[in-house]
Simulated scan of single mutants.
Amino acid sequence: MVTVVSHPLIQHKLSLMRDTGTGVKEFRELAAEISMLLAYEAMRDLELAPQTLTTPLQTGQFPMLSGKKLALVAILRAGLIMTDAIVALVPAAKVGHLGMYRDPQTLKPVAYYNKLPADIAERRVFLTDPMLATGGSASAAIDSLKEAGAQSIKLMCILSAPEGIAVIERDHPDVEIVTAAIDSHLNDHGYIVPGLGDAGDRIYGTK
């Protein structure tokens, strides 16, 4: 399942991220803002339960989050910008990290780091990566989460390609993708077209 969050604010901010004239500072801010807006949609189905609270005027039953606790897992390095923003909304969430990079020759994912909450199996997991391109790294990251016991996983991406979506739907049909847009295609180097370039390089100013 793919959910495209087409809210005008998100689309406006995404267009600014695409612009080559957008500098590192603004790019980071836009990525963080879009991530928070995507989180509202991705977390729409969180469970609520009434709790007794006392307002300045009276005591009553009011909805509070219940059910499984949350985990935010970033695919390094670019996913960090998303988890850092989203944790401001859900500060009690635990944060994990999966190191994956794409081999420039084979375009296959290479794992180099894995640090997840010990109780990941008991949490709803939101996996973050700004770009869903070939889908290889995201699929491998989901494999790692499932091997650790995670059962409820959503993949949050700022930008997606049809090829990457197809890989996730093939390998992990139980994982919902929440994204701001689906672009046209991948080029010969595995970059999303029209895209916004390499998200990691633009976030950290490394190119």
Rank of each mutant, 00 (worst) to 15 (best):
V73K: 09
E169L: 03
H185T: 13
M1T: 12
E47K: 12
V95H: 06
G23A: 10
T59G: 04
I182V: 15
P194K: 12
Y191L: 06
Y40L: 07
K69Q: 14
M100R: 05
P194W: 12
A148P: 07
S6C: 14
T3E: 09
G96E: 05
A85T: 04
T134A: 10
P56E: 04
S184K: 12
G60V: 01
L116H: 03
H172G: 07
I34M: 11
A150G: 00
R123G: 01
R77T: 04
P162L: 10
K108S: 07
A148R: 13
A138M: 05
V90F: 15
K146C: 06
L155G: 01
H12R: 13
S139M: 05
M1W: 09
P173H: 09
K94R: 11
V175F: 11
K154F: 10
G195T: 09
G79I: 07
I75P: 08
S152K: 06
E176W: 13
T54V: 03
A111Y: 02
Q151P: 00
D19N: 15
A49P: 01
M17I: 05
A71G: 02
I168R: 05
T20D: 13
V110P: 00
T52E: 15
T106V: 13
V193S: 02
V175G: 00
T55C: 03
V175L: 02
H189D: 11
G60K: 00
S137M: 13
T52G: 01
V175C: 02
I34L: 12
P130H: 02
V4N: 08
S184M: 09
T206E: 04
L76E: 04
K207W: 06
T54H: 10
R170T: 12
L98I: 15
E169M: 00
K69W: 11
V4K: 07
A199C: 05
G136M: 14
E147A: 15
P117A: 14
R18E: 09
A42S: 14
S144W: 11
L53P: 00
I153F: 04
S160E: 12
H172I: 07
R123V: 08
P194L: 06
A74P: 00
S144T: 13
M64G: 02
D143P: 00
T55S: 14
P63N: 13
L37E: 13
T106D: 13
N187H: 08
Y112E: 10
C157H: 12
V110D: 06
D84R: 14
L98C: 03
L186H: 03
R18M: 08
I182P: 02
I158W: 04
A140Q: 13
E26T: 15
I86Q: 02
L30D: 01
P117K: 15
L132P: 00
D143A: 06
M64F: 15
Q11Y: 05
L76Y: 08
K25M: 04
K146R: 15
L145C: 12
L159M: 15
L38F: 11
G164P: 11
S184T: 08
I10A: 10
D103M: 06
D84T: 12
K154H: 09
D103I: 09
D171G: 00
A133H: 12
Q61F: 12
D103V: 05
Q51R: 10
M64A: 14
R102C: 10
S139T: 05
I192R: 08
A85L: 06
I203V: 07
D129Q: 05
G60F: 04
M100A: 13
